[in-house]
């Protein structure tokens, strides 16, 4: 190999590394933002749930998700290398810089809406974290190994509730079915891969979304069957939360969440 060729190859490799690092950053941010936004939503329930046990259960989920967000956003900040930390990312980005799945930011609504949203995302996170366990990125694999244990419990909690609601009374069945119809339209985004997803999959960092969809779908159908609920027809609206294009709800959530940091910039808490 000539010196010029070797130099070209090195340049190519470093470009690749840079590309995959940028994709890695964006991918980790997406995971972190999804956990944070969902955890923030669940935090709104604490003290107001239908029964004490559910208050503790939802708080537990919120706590796990905020914990995952902290690990993921800290890692994202390190990859970025601009001296930011988890809090800078959580409190000093505006909605267009948030890259959570659109489903995660949907309002709590009633208990059925919260639980359906939770169930669909738990099933998704379960596939993602299981897939990440064999990631070529050892840091991400370690975070996923912890998160997957939590997510298994979350899925048991939300699928258990979905079955109770679907199979419970006429009212609970109606509410659960309505909730499902209302937010099913956000599920396409879960598995539509863009260039970030493709690059991290190609680099062995993350599982291929297309490989996960059938398992997710089977999980969903199994629980919906037990809950006697109907899977809504797919309405493929191309939501782009993970590219920073959100519903109107996220801005309001961030206004509340970021209020102290924005009002007293630079303060230590």
């Amino acid at each position: 190999m000539s010196a010029a060729n070797a130099a070209d190859e090195m340049k190519g490799q470093s470009l690749n590394a840079q590309l995959s690092n940028d994709a890695r950053l964006r991918y980790v941010l997406r995971l972190g933002d999804t956990s944070l936004v969902l955890g923030q939503r669940l935090g709104e329930w604490v003290g107001h749930s239908p029964a004490l046990e559910e208050d503790l259960g939802l708080a537990n989920l919120a706590l796990d998700l905020v914990g995952q967000a902290r690990l993921l956003l800290s890692y994202a900040a390190e990859i970025e290398g601009k001296g930011r930390d988890e809090d800078a990312l959580a409190f000093f980005r505006d909605a267009p810089q948030f890259t959570n799945l659109t489903l995660a930011e949907q309002p709590n609504g009633d208990f059925a809406q919260t639980l359906v949203r939770q169930f669909l995302l738990d099933a998704w996170q379960l596939e993602i974290y299981e897939g990440l366990a064999s990631s070529s990125d050892t840091r991400l694999a370690a975070i996923a190994a912890k998160a997957v244990k939590e997510t298994r419990y979350h899925f048991r909690f939300s699928s258990g509730w979905l079955i109770r609601l679907g199979d419970g009374t006429e009212e609970s069945h109606r509410r659960a079915q309505n909730a499902l119809e209302g937010i099913w339209r956000f599920t396409d985004e879960l598995f539509v891969a863009d260039e970030v997803d493709e690059q991290v999959a190609a680099a062995g960092i993350a599982p291929r979304l297309a490989d996960l969809q059938p398992r997710w779908s089977a999980h969903i159908d199994e629980v919906l069957g037990g809950a006697t609920l109907q899977r809504p027809a797919s309405i493929p609206y191309p939501w782009h939360g993970k590219r920073g294009v959100h519903t109107e709800h996220l801005g309001h959530m961030l206004t509340e969440m970021q209020h102290l940091q924005r009002t007293y910039p630079g303060a230590q808490w």
């Binding site: 107001h48 749930s49 239908p50 009633d110 208990f111 199979d167 009374t169 009212e171 609970s172 509410r175």
Partner: peptide, 16 residues
């Protein structure tokens, strides 16, 4: 409010 709003949820759990 939490108790009243949660009534249908507790009923669903009992019915199931």
């Amino acid at each position: 409010h939490a108790h009243a709003e949660g009534g249908w949820v507790r009923e669903a759990a009992a019915a199931h």
